[in-house]
Design a protein around this nucleic acid. Sequence first.
DNA 1: AAAATGAGAATGAACGTTCACTCCCAGTAA
DNA 2: TTACTGGGAGTGAACGTTCATTCTCATTTT
Lengths: 208, 208
Amino acid sequence: MLETKAQRQSDRRAEILDAAERCFARAGFHRASMQDICGEAAMSPGNLYRYFPSKEALIAGICERNRAEAVASFALVDQAPEFFEGLAGLARHHLVDRTEDEVALCAEIMAESRRHPDIAQLYQGIEKDIRDRIAGLLKQAAGRDEIRNDLDLDAAASVLMLLGDGMSWRRSVDPSFDAEKVLPLILAMVRGLLAKPDRDAPAHGAKS
Amino acid sequence: MLETKAQRQSDRRAEILDAAERCFARAGFHRASMQDICGEAAMSPGNLYRYFPSKEALIAGICERNRAEAVASFALVDQAPEFFEGLAGLARHHLVDRTEDEVALCAEIMAESRRHPDIAQLYQGIEKDIRDRIAGLLKQAAGRDEIRNDLDLDAAASVLMLLGDGMSWRRSVDPSFDAEKVLPLILAMVRGLLAKPDRDAPAHGAKS
DNA sequence: AAAATGAGAATGAACGTTCACTCCCAGTAA
DNA sequence: TTACTGGGAGTGAACGTTCATTCTCATTTT
């Protein structure tokens, strides 16, 4: 009884967020009006406002969902047999397999976090979370002797995040960008940065 | 006479663009109103509209200026004695030396180009220009035998641009990001990607 | 005088949000 | 069964505000 009530509410909220995601990905935050979202969600404004108190709350809700998803993807990588393999899987998952809409939405959130202080705080929380997980990954790998141990892990984590941002942005801004094609270069580059210099790295394939 | 007229007009336009840049960097495109810009430029709306026909035209004007500046910075690098040195200089100029406002503005333009088709076209023109110049740099370096010659230059150019975007975004989104600290890692990484494998690369300094 | 330059109030559209109201249905008393 | 009722779900017109843009008129320059 009570359960189903709460469940229904939660489902409805999820539906609304789905609709909002579509609108935001299509038109951006500012150009997607509440009316648009209401239309997409097949719902009147008044009713929508019973589930979310403001447009900003929609954005926040979407952020939270993304965070949950990001965290989940890290859990998957933790189980990879070897560090670079896991990293490659994570990169592929985040940067190649994502749909246009997901990338667009991510770009939108990043852009928005530059202006709305509340969103900025939320987003930076997520960033910190992700950064910590990356640092954890690196530390673990260093412990297992899979990467060089004289690295500034903090700076290395920054580099990895920066690469992620860069690929994500390039995808969302440059229609001719081919993530699939560039990813191997990136991974080779990262390997060069992180791998122990002892075992001489093989030449990365360039001519196909 | 006629010259001074045109000059005055041009100066006035530049002043307005300066004011608009400040406003846009501070508040973003959508939240910076024309009134704000008028205030910053110490000018009435009616008068401002005599110099620029729309808000979008302001954005376009700013884009053009940035393009001109970017092109100029490439000319400087072309004169560097050696490829990696030139690249490092370019990176420093674009990613470390830039002011907060310039980075913010760049982010704003990128975000806006995702929305406004006209801006998108303009921005992609600039991107293409820059990409061509990077490709030219790489080709030249390959010709001089300064970098390996089995590279996919197109993909390598993508990687370099992606790194630039990534650093730029990280700067504008993450206040704790220290470009100065990360740049050496990035450069070492790029060197690993581009340099000829013959001469064994020295270990990049990590522990400071 | 004529043209260029400037000011600032006015305009109209778009937007997020609210509010008064309707609809639907489970529960219950007759 | 039927009639009543309380409240959550849902509606959509309206509100107040903001904003880009335009209009009208004053001032300065040629």
